[in-house]
């Protein structure tokens, strides 16, 4: 049975995992390698590790750190942060990534997506979208860790990326990120309605029930979780148990 993925996300700044609210006001959570191992042991189905300041500061991520995060894990890894070129993607893959998430530079140079799909395969290329509500039923795609306007309508931008063949969408609600009030179900529904590829929802996970709703009502293919794990409010088995109680197929590690 095909199971729904629960994916912890590590936002990395310098040597630390950090977490904020609305992608701002970042607090240090801990050591990336230790947290990655902890979530693997708890039964994470994948892991996302993002250097969240690389594109803002226009520098390369710490590939040695990225490599050591992956060293003890035997689950798929999505990595990202500051990707500007096929060369950068290759560096992430060499550091142990199975997939890379691209946002900022793709909004300025969309052909990067189609070139990346052609070179590395669709399964490897994740479009990361940081969506912020601009008016009822509309969202703008933000960049640089939710800081900068792209001027692009998020839904139109996703349609373009789908045409370019990306393999997965990592959908972050800037409005809901870190708030622990549940996912932005309206945003999720708008995206899953048009996407014929897996959609990973991120931003606002509150509890197991909010994860179950995103899957059952919002048709998310995977749920991405940060704050409630980082602050030890829940462990992964608790969240999966609630999902299973709502008839969602989950992986028993």
């Amino acid at each position: 049975m095909h199971s729904v993925r629960l994916i912890p996300r590590l936002d990395i700044k310098g040597p630390n995992v950090v977490k904020g609210i609305h992608l701002e006001g970042l607090r240090v959570i801990g050591n990336p390698v230790d947290l990655a191992r902890k979530y693997f042991e708890q039964g994470a189905d994948e892991l996302i590790a993002m250097d969240i300041v690389a594109s803002l500061y226009q520098r390369s991520p710490d590939f040695d750190l990225m490599r050591s995060i992956g060293n003890e894990l035997f689950i798929p890894l999505t990595m990202g942060g500051g990707i500007q070129s096929l060369h950068d993607i290759n560096n992430f893959l060499r550091a142990g990534a199975d997939k890379v998430a691209i946002n900022t530079y793709a909004t300025r140079n969309p052909t990067l997506l189609s070139e990346a799909v052609h070179q590395f395969g669709a399964q490897c290329i994740v479009l990361s979208v940081e969506a912020k509500r601009s008016s009822p039923g509309h969202w703008e795609a933000y960049t640089d860790g939710g800081r900068e306007h792209s001027g692009l309508d998020a839904i139109e931008w996703i349609k373009r990326a789908l045409d370019m063949g990306v393999g997965e969408i990592l959908l972050t609600s800037v409005d809901f990120d870190g708030t622990k009030k549940g996912y932005d179900r309206e945003l999720l529904a708008a995206v899953t309605a048009i996407a014929d590829i897996p959609v990973v929802i991120h931003g606002g996970a509150k509890d197991g029930m909010s994860l179950a709703e995103a899957v059952n009502d919002g048709h998310a293919d995977a749920v991405c979780v940060a704050s409630i794990l980082h602050y030890d409010e829940y462990a992964i088995p608790d969240l999966k148990k609630t999902m299973a109680e709502h008839r969602i197929p989950i992986r028993h590690p």
């Binding site: 049975m1 095909h2 199971s3 993925r5 997965e168």
Partner: peptide, 11 residues
């Protein structure tokens, strides 16, 4: 509604 590629965990 199963999508291709078949991506993710399966038994």
């Amino acid at each position: 509604g199963a999508k291709t590629p078949h991506m993710g965990w399966n038994s």
